[in-house]
Computed example of a mutant assay.
Amino acid sequence: EAAARAADQEGKTCSYFACRKNDARILDMIIQVGGTDLVKDLRRSDSEGHTCAHWAAWRGNVEILARIIELAGPQVVLATDSEGKTCAHWAGDRGEFGTFDILLAAGGKQLATAADHKGKTCAHWAVQKGSVEALRKLIEVGGKEVATAVDKEGKTCAYWSVWMEDEASMEVLLAAAGKEAVMSADEEGKTCAHLAAERGATGMLRKLLAAGGKELATAADKWGCTCAHWA
């Protein structure tokens, strides 16, 4: 039992390595040997704040995540690493959106709206990775706050929707938050309408202006340019 629970100098345990290596069989063996005390190890983080749940999410392993949540409790999915990222951020970064059902069931709105130290949420990742279904799930759990989230560079989900030229995700964002989803400006004062005009995404620009109206059409960046200047 002591060997199963031993941690190295960085706080990494046998269960940690089993999750990192995506080996559910080894994890089950460790759980059988370690008993109820192993719960503490499943919640433990290494020197960078990475937990077993982070690695299970990174690997997209729903089976391992289910075991971790069952034994360590739903709060385990809310743990953040040294960059402020939850296991859901890790899953989003990898495009492992198949984990979102179990993660959101455990973490709820707090997980759906969680932002890392750069202000990036799982919804930002969902749009960047082209998963409209994941975006819908996040909004269902987290509400309008998910659709209007702004990172520390001023980039919204709508910004990335325009960047990806993904009209389906834009429709989801507009349905959830309407005008609020598209009005934010980035560090240069550019709105997603500026970006759409600059990229020649005329269909997207029409959707944006229909939602944002005159206020969006006349919004100027730090150079005094509107989206018409960039078109």
Rank of each mutant, 00 (worst) to 15 (best):
G119F: 03
D93V: 10
E145R: 12
G130W: 06
K144D: 07
A158R: 00
T191R: 04
A53G: 06
C157N: 07
R20Y: 13
E83Q: 10
I64C: 02
A6S: 11
L78Q: 07
E198D: 15
I31M: 00
A175E: 12
L78V: 06
L104I: 08
W90A: 04
L174I: 13
L174T: 01
V141I: 14
L174K: 04
I69C: 04
G92K: 02
D221C: 10
A18C: 07
R59C: 05
G142Y: 00
G107M: 05
A175M: 12
R44I: 04
S82Y: 14
T113M: 08
Q75N: 13
H194L: 09
L78A: 08
K21W: 13
K129A: 09
V162S: 01
K85R: 13
L135Q: 02
E83S: 11
S15E: 09
A217N: 09
Q32D: 10
L111K: 02
A3F: 09
T226W: 10
G35Q: 09
E10W: 15
S82W: 12
H50W: 15
D186T: 08
F100T: 03
E171W: 12
L103M: 10
E83H: 10
V39N: 08
E180S: 10
W90D: 03
D8S: 14
V62I: 14
E171D: 12
T51Y: 07
N61K: 08
M170I: 11
S161R: 00
